[in-house]
């Protein structure tokens, strides 16, 4: 039995050495080109973490990225602004991004655009935390704790450099070859949604779909939202919650989760601007790029409305 064991051990060592070499060489190359990016999702995340010094930071998912035009806020409020919204990411990711940014900078104001569907116990938010992997060794303590929510083994898997930069190479090439225009993080869309003959969901005008059924909340997600508030308060950052506008009527203004977020906002004294079912956007196909996202004209109108409301609620947010 010793002979085959010896062969297996010898071969395993050779394979592991080869894998280590491949991982080190190609991982280093990937790391190098990854942090050379000048546009794209990962560049924007890196910018928010390491470089953002603006007065106003906007957090959230693709809704935040596509709905808040920094130029409009700068013009209306006189605050420099960066849109830190990341497509597909919800509260856990945003709280992590905010915490890392706050280690280095203290903006005067933050807006957190909240997707009400992002608080239920369905696990998809944890899968998307892989966007944090490339930054793990920059902020191991903060990111490590968050990745533990998904699996305690992730930190060990991240010893592999290739795994850290998993699936990023085509992204790097894509934005290297065709860089995005820098709009201070804002993801403009210029398409216009066509009005269908009859709306798909409600089956006709004036028939709101039923209110969402009650589903259990994920406590980690509500804790992350509270942590977001606490982080902001600790650095004396003025914080505002928003619900983005919707094209189609949503029963009871996003139902169950909406109530939870409203109660958290109220308990910490945070203003919440609710634009769900706002008549300026409801059924206005010309302001939407798709059924969930505003296009550029829609985003500019919305940004102006939010800025006006901020000005009304906080008369001089740019003053020290």
């Amino acid at each position: 039995m010793n002979k085959p064991i010896g062969r297996v051990v010898a071969k395993s060592i050779k394979v592991i050495i080869c894998l280590f070499l491949l991982d080190t060489v190609f991982g280093e190359i990937q790391r190098h080109v990854f942090f050379l990016q000048k546009s794209g999702k990962f560049y924007r995340i890196n910018y928010t973490m390491d470089k953002s010094t603006e007065d106003l930071l906007i957090f959230g998912s693709s809704h935040a990225a596509a709905h808040y035009v920094p130029d409009v806020f700068e013009q209306e409020l006189g605050l420099s602004c960066h849109n830190a919204g990341v497509a597909g990411q919800q509260i856990i990711f945003n709280a992590t991004l905010q915490r890392i940014a706050l280690e280095r900078t203290a903006p005067r104001m933050m807006i957190l655009d909240i997707d009400t569907y992002g608080f239920y116990l369905d696990g998809y938010q944890y899968d998307r935390l892989s966007d944090l992997h490339p930054f793990f060794y920059k902020y191991p303590d903060i990111i490590g704790k968050v990745l533990d929510l998904k699996s305690r083994l992730t930190k060990y898997a991240l010893k592999s450099k290739l795994y850290q930069y998993n699936s990023t190479i085509v992204h790097v090439l894509r934005y290297g070859l065709s860089p995005q225009k820098d709009r201070k993080g804002y993801q403009a869309t210029f398409a216009q949604l066509q009005r269908p003959a009859q709306t798909m969901k409600d089956g006709g005008e004036g028939q709101p779909p039923p209110v969402q059924q009650t589903r259990p909340f994920d406590k980690n997600l509500t804790a992350a939202l509270e942590q977001f508030v606490i982080n902001a308060k600790q650095r004396n950052v003025l914080l505002v919650f928003t619900f983005s506008p919707t094209l189609e009527y949503e029963g009871s203004s996003a139902g169950h989760a909406g109530d939870l977020i409203r109660s958290i906002a109220a308990s910490y004294g945070i203003k919440l601007f609710d634009y769900i079912n706002d008549p300026h956007f409801l059924g206005r196909y010309e302001l939407f790029a798709d059924s969930g996202h505003l296009n550029d004209p829609g985003a500019r109108l919305f940004s102006k409305m939010v800025a006006d409301k901020i000005r009304a609620e906080f008369p001089e947010p740019n003053r020290d």
Partner: peptide
């Protein structure tokens, strides 16, 4: 042979969808 094993493992680490 050794490189083949290591290369496929490296491709999984680099390109696999783990979620």
């Amino acid at each position: 042979r050794v490189l083949s094993y290591a290369a496929v493992a490296a491709m999984i680490l680099s390109l696999g969808v783990f979620d």
